Amino acid sequence: MTNDEVAILLHEIGDMLDILGEDRFRVVSYHRAARAVEGLTADVGDLVRDGKLGDIPGVGTAIAEKITEYVTTGRLGYHEELKARFPPGVLDLLQVRGIGPKKVQILWQQLGITDLAGLEEAAKHHRLRRIKGFGEKTEANLLKAIETYRQGQARALIWDAAQLVDAIRAHLESRAPITRLEAAGSFRRMRETVGDVDILVTTRDVKAAMRAFTAFPAVKQVYSEGEIKSSVLVEYDAYTGGKRLLQVDLEILDADSWGAGLQYFT
């Protein structure tokens, strides 16, 4: 179980609690714990085995117990119980830029929208503007965001991904003191297509590297920007023709953990 998988699970719990209108403190606690796990340099599985989850800032006893259950069994009963309270497709709405838990709550409970197709139809037929906080501009932006999301789900040819990695490498090395850079994941395994690209770097200036990455000219959307990891959606010219989108993640590693990190992310 990777740190990213644990962090995603915790964020999902926080989002579901938020949509359901649960106590704000609990919502914040899960998101805080998720960000703490994202920022770990150690493997969360090792911390579970060593009984050191309590050393992570923002991870209390209750959340530590849930992380332990997820890491040791591959599932979490509490997460599954929460998810069962939603119609299939509702949580997918969170993947659309501009849609957060509060808006999902409104779309679901006031308009009965339970999936992306329903959201797209409502925006096209101007049903959203009837609700406070949604207007004509919101509808137009959501339609664009839905299209962007769908394009970002497509896989890229390894040739296209290689061209993109080379361009990002040149951009980063010209704007930050990068000491090592490698693309990991399915790209490093040389699969014919990739669903996203993970780029690992070591650098003498983490902040400069992160700024340069999110400022890459082809970036169309910044999904997240953290101290040691950022995710963006990048536009590229496909070998088969036309413009495509691909998610690219940048992970900063310590020089001493480069070998282990490269293996871990591949």
Score class of each variant (00 low, 15 high):
residue 20 L to H: 07
residue 47 L to W: 07
residue 209 A to W: 13
residue 84 A to S: 08
residue 191 R to M: 12
residue 65 E to R: 10
residue 14 G to D: 06
residue 243 K to D: 14
residue 68 T to D: 04
residue 150 R to Y: 14
residue 193 T to Q: 12
residue 217 P to M: 01
residue 240 T to F: 15
residue 194 V to R: 08
residue 71 V to R: 00
residue 192 E to T: 14
residue 21 G to M: 05
residue 138 T to D: 01
residue 146 I to M: 06
residue 68 T to A: 01
residue 157 L to N: 11
residue 69 E to L: 01
residue 147 E to S: 04
residue 253 L to Y: 15
residue 86 F to Q: 01
residue 183 A to H: 08
residue 216 F to K: 00
residue 35 R to P: 09
residue 237 D to W: 15
residue 18 D to R: 05
residue 115 D to S: 03
residue 125 H to S: 14
residue 13 I to M: 09
residue 110 Q to P: 06
residue 180 R to K: 06
residue 13 I to T: 00
residue 157 L to R: 12
residue 70 Y to S: 02
residue 228 I to S: 13
residue 171 H to G: 03
residue 212 A to P: 03
residue 2 T to K: 13
residue 211 R to D: 15
residue 212 A to Y: 06
residue 44 V to L: 02
residue 237 D to I: 14
residue 133 G to R: 06
residue 166 D to S: 11
residue 208 A to R: 10
residue 46 D to L: 12
residue 6 V to E: 00
residue 244 R to P: 07
residue 264 Y to M: 03
residue 256 D to A: 09
residue 227 E to F: 15
residue 185 G to P: 07
residue 107 L to H: 11
residue 135 G to L: 05
residue 196 D to N: 04
residue 14 G to Q: 04
residue 256 D to W: 12
residue 136 E to Y: 10
residue 152 G to W: 11
residue 204 R to E: 15
residue 251 E to V: 11
residue 245 L to S: 03
residue 37 V to S: 00
residue 143 L to P: 09
residue 252 I to Q: 04
residue 131 I to R: 12
residue 85 R to F: 03
residue 136 E to N: 04
residue 176 A to Y: 10
residue 201 V to K: 05
residue 203 T to E: 09
residue 175 R to A: 10
residue 148 T to W: 14
residue 125 H to P: 06
residue 186 S to P: 12
residue 7 A to V: 02
residue 207 K to W: 15
residue 85 R to M: 03
residue 185 G to Q: 10
residue 215 A to W: 05
residue 249 D to L: 02
residue 212 A to L: 00
residue 194 V to L: 08
residue 19 I to T: 01
residue 93 L to R: 01
residue 112 G to E: 08
residue 223 Y to P: 07
residue 101 P to A: 15
residue 34 A to V: 02
residue 251 E to T: 13
residue 27 V to F: 11
residue 169 R to Q: 15
residue 231 S to H: 09
residue 74 G to K: 00
residue 75 R to G: 00
residue 69 E to T: 02
residue 27 V to S: 06
residue 98 G to A: 04
residue 126 H to G: 10
residue 130 R to T: 12
residue 15 D to E: 15
residue 173 E to L: 13
residue 147 E to H: 06
residue 23 D to K: 09
residue 165 V to W: 09
residue 193 T to E: 14
residue 10 L to Q: 04
residue 122 A to H: 07
residue 199 I to Q: 06
residue 193 T to M: 08
residue 238 A to H: 12
residue 177 P to T: 04
residue 64 A to F: 13
residue 35 R to S: 07
residue 95 Q to H: 14
residue 192 E to N: 14
residue 210 M to Y: 14
residue 107 L to M: 10
residue 81 E to V: 00
residue 109 Q to K: 11
